[in-house]
């Protein structure tokens, strides 16, 4: 009877476990193994030990890509700041606020290709953004948002921010709802002004949400690819060439699958370090109940 029950249980689990095994667990384990092999699909894999990691060390495109990916992390604090402000703002019980929230959520459900194409047109040298800025007298000559190597990366980051805002806003709204109303009222009775209340009461209580949203957006920032692919193709002069893009190029552009796996392993390591650091940082600030 017990055996039968076990069999039935595993029968139910089988499809999920098989698929997870093939497409989730296997790649994690063998991705690391693959990074020790030279593999181009056409000829059989060749074991090369750590040679590919040594090659990375002297590969200038690796350093360019790593540098850009780390710069891309700047989007994380900006995104948290904006979405917290936004969440506090749309929390007020006004009429039609639901539609307001929905508006911010639109970019989240829109395809990244549509978003990328849209902003590629808007940010064109003769596009709408330059037109508006010129008319407002804020600039005197059109800005080359996507074709100036000093600006392009930040322009793409802005689009990431624009698309992600609504998602993180919802996380923070959930976080805010979980805060018992009593805390803020008590602080108000103690004579704390609205800003002081926000800083000393609300923000500390939001820590679990900040930790979660920060980690999620950091992971997303490190694997940014689609925005770049659609908007700039990694250029100009590799100024938007990220780690994930380089991995994609090596794997599917040049068929250096082993080398690409080595890049993936480095990227994964950076991600893990960052997640742990994030966790530590917020924990030290008195995050006791998480």
């Amino acid at each position: 009877m017990a055996l039968r029950r076990t069999l039935v249980a595993y029968f139910f689990l089988l499809p999920a476990l098989a698929l997870l095994g093939v497409f989730t667990f296997y790649p994690v384990v063998f991705g690391t193994v693959l990074s020790l092999f030279e593999y181009d699909v056409i000829s059989p894999p060749r074991y090369v030990g750590l040679a590919q990691f040594r090659a990375l060390w002297t590969d200038r495109y690796f350093w360019i890509a790593l540098d850009n990916s780390l710069k891309y992390l700047l989007v994380v604090p900006a995104l948290q700041f904006c979405s917290i402000v936004l969440a506090l703002w749309v929390r007020r019980p006004l009429r039609g606020i639901g539609w307001f929230r929905a508006a911010f959520y639109l970019p989240v459900v829109t395809s990244i290709v549509v978003v990328g194409l849209l902003w590629r047109w808007l940010l064109d040298e003769s596009g709408l953004v330059n037109y508006v800025l010129l008319r407002a007298g804020l600039i005197h000559a059109p800005i080359h948002w996507l074709t100036n190597p000093d600006i392009a990366l930040y322009a793409v980051m802005f689009v990431t921010l624009w698309k992600g805002l609504g998602y993180y806003m919802v996380i923070y709204l959930a976080g805010l709802e979980a805060i018992p109303a009593g805390y803020e009222e008590a602080a108000a009775l103690d004579g704390a002004g609205p800003l002081a209340r926000l800083w000393h009461v609300t923000i500390p209580l939001l820590r679990p949400s900040i930790l979660l949203a920060g980690t999620l957006s950091a992971i997303a920032a490190l694997r940014v690819f689609e925005e770049v692919y659609v908007m700039t193709g990694g250029g100009p002069v590799y100024s938007t060439y990220t780690m994930f893009y380089y991995m994609f190029d090596q794997a599917f552009g040049s068929l250096h699958l082993g080398y690409a796996a080595a890049l993936g392993v480095v990227l994964a390591a950076v991600t893990v370090v960052l997640a742990v650091a994030n966790f530590r940082l917020l924990r030290q600030g008195g995050l006791t109940y998480y």
Partner: peptide
Amino acid sequence: VDQKLLASIA
């Protein structure tokens, strides 16, 4: 085309 060809061969 180059990239697609390589990926298809692979």
